[in-house]
Design a binder for these strands. Sequence first.
DNA 1: GCCTATCATTTAACATGTTAAGTATGCCTC
DNA 2: GAGGCATACTTAACATGTTAAATGATAGGC
Lengths: 148, 148
Amino acid sequence: MSELRDIKHSLPMLLLQAREAAMAKFRPMLRSHGLTEQQWRVIRVLASVDVMDASQLAKASLLLAPSLTRILQHLVKQEFIRRDADATDQRKSVLCLTVKGQQIYAVVGPDSEALYKDIEAKFSTEKLNTLYQLLAELNIALDVPFES
Amino acid sequence: MSELRDIKHSLPMLLLQAREAAMAKFRPMLRSHGLTEQQWRVIRVLASVDVMDASQLAKASLLLAPSLTRILQHLVKQEFIRRDADATDQRKSVLCLTVKGQQIYAVVGPDSEALYKDIEAKFSTEKLNTLYQLLAELNIALDVPFES
DNA sequence: GCCTATCATTTAACATGTTAAGTATGCCTC
DNA sequence: GAGGCATACTTAACATGTTAAATGATAGGC
């Protein structure tokens, strides 16, 4: 009928499809541990930094603030995360993993890493590195704020 | 603290970040036309094929069936889409754009294409083609050919 | 010390994502 | 031609995505 851009050349669609393919096995694994994908992202970021405020945590875990608010409410209630007031700025919350949070990280981490290795086995490390590089360049080209 | 996989080398995270970067300008544009990203995906697919059943439409627009059900209810109510019963299989619905649906497609399509051109201008066509190729290969490598 | 703009986070409202279960129809086999 | 199984959705329930607005705290200018 019409001939706009083919789906095969729609970058957002290709990226979405690729992400779905890459995530396919992660969600059932995380679910078996009682976690969602997004909850795991938060836990993983916190595990790598010890302590972080909510704004930084949102950026690092690629979540919008309202989503993070709800996720933190849940994770605090489950006692995976503890939230404290920032000593110098009462607007901020400081988040960190509890012992229970560190424990589930230690349990889920290896399962997660195994799935990454699966992907690397199916798609050569060389191509994967090229892909990482291109995606990083794309993010810079499209003017994405990037932080560590 | 811990040393699992760096976020910078997590494929799902990189793909998510890249998609967000690529979509950043699309959502406000679509919103100015009263459409969500997913509604536009459905309309765009239907515009390219004239007629399609719901299952095919879900796959082509990368939506899960429950999401598509709700989106179609909305789009039918807005009279962008018409749904008919399949003549030979009463389980199936056959979807197509109404005249109003074709009209909004004609209006939004050029805006969408302009944003794609923006991306291509910021990120060389050559790199973009390499990226398309790699993503396609990744999808083939990871798409589970069997099981569910 | 106020005023105001900004920042950090939350709340609200609606749309979609995700899994599981439900409903209705079609297919197949005995 | 009745059972049994698969298919094509739909519903339900909960979690997250997205935008706008609200709340409370801070920083600067005056």
